[in-house]
Nucleic acid binder design. Structure first.
Lengths: 133, 133
DNA sequence: TGTAAAAATGTTATGTTATAACATAATGAA
DNA sequence: TTCATTATGTTATAACATAACATTTTTACA
C-alpha cells in the first residue's frame, strides 16, 4: 500500500510550495489526506525532517511550522522574518551577520553548528496598513 | 483554595533558577506538584508567559523550554547558545549584532519587533571532551 | 467592615505538535 | 529471486499548549 513512485518528500514539498505562508505539519497532513486518506503524522514528519536536513524546507521554530525555502543554497545561514500580522515569512541570507554571530559565540568558547534567527514584526505591506504612522 | 501569598510566578521562577538547564513547562509543573499536587498546566503556562513578558525568563523556542534569565536588562536583545551535548544554555547580549540585524531587516521594509536568536552547537567543556580535536 | 470590581488561580476539557516502536511494502543490487 | 536496505504504514502515546468558565484572592473605596 506504500506509494513511492512519487515520493512523500516530493508531495510534502509541493504542498509547501503552493503556499505563501508557513504550514504546520498537520496542515500538510490534512491537505495530503485528500488524495491519501490514511496518511499518518509520522510519515509527514519524516518527510519534513528529510526536507529540512537537505535544505529544501525551513522549520520556523518560533511558530512550529514549515515553509519551502526560496534559496536552496546556504543551509543554516538564512534569517527569517515573520510578519505577525499577515503571517508571511521571508528569507534573507547574510554571510556577514552569520559570521559576526559565530565569532561572538566563539569568543566565549562555544562552537556553533546551527543558527536559528527569526525576527518577528510587520512586513512592508502590513506596516503601511494598520501601522503606527 | 488558590494560593497567593507567594505568587505562582515566584514559585515558577524559583524552580527555573535552581536549574542549570532549560526546563519544559511540564518539568516545572511536575516539580511544583510536590508541594501543590493539583496544579494544572494552564497555571504554569500563565506564570511562564508573564515571566517571559516581563523579562525574567527566556523561552527557548527551538527546544520548547524555559530558562531563568541571567540578566534582567534588555528584553529581546539577547542571544542564546544551546549546547546540544550537555544542554547548557548561555545568554549573550550584543546590541551591535541586534542593531545590524534590525538594519538588515529594515532594508527590505520589515519592521522588527522581537528577535529570536538561538545558536546550537557545543559549549566549551563539551568541545574539549568528545570533540573533533 | 462590607461589598463590588479586578486579577489570579483552579478546573475541566480539549487542541496541537511530535515521536516511539514495530509491521509491511517498494526498491535496487547481487 | 532473494536479500538487504530504505521508505512508508500503522498503532499508540508522549509532549506541548490553550480555551472556557468557575472560584478565590486581592484591592480599593464607599
Amino acid at each position: 500500500m506504500a506509494i513511492r513512485s512519487e515520493t512523500m518528500q516530493k508531495r510534502v514539498l509541493s504542498v509547501l510550495k503552493r503556499r505563501a505562508r508557513p504550514a504546520s505539519a498537520y496542515a500538510v497532513l490534512d491537505e495530503l489526506r485528500g488524495e491519501h486518506p490514511k496518511l499518518a503524522p509520522a510519515t509527514v514528519y519524516r518527510a519534513l525532517s528529510a526536507l529540512t536536513e537537505n535544505g529544501y524546507v525551513h522549520r520556523v521554530e518560533s511558530i512550529n511550522a514549515f515553509i519551502a525555502r526560496q534559496t536552496h543554497a546556504d543551509v543554516s545561514t538564512s534569517i527569517l522574518s515573520i510578519c505577525d500580522d499577515c503571517g508571511v515569512v521571508e528569507e534573507t541570507v547574510s554571510h556577514n551577520l552569520i559570521a559576526d554571530l559565530s565569532r561572538l559565540m566563539e569568543k566565549s568558547g562555544f562552537s556553533p553548528q546551527h543558527h536559528v534567527i527569526e525576527v518577528h514584526g510587520q512586513c512592508e505591506s502590513c506596516c503601511g496598513n494598520g501601522g503606527a504612522e
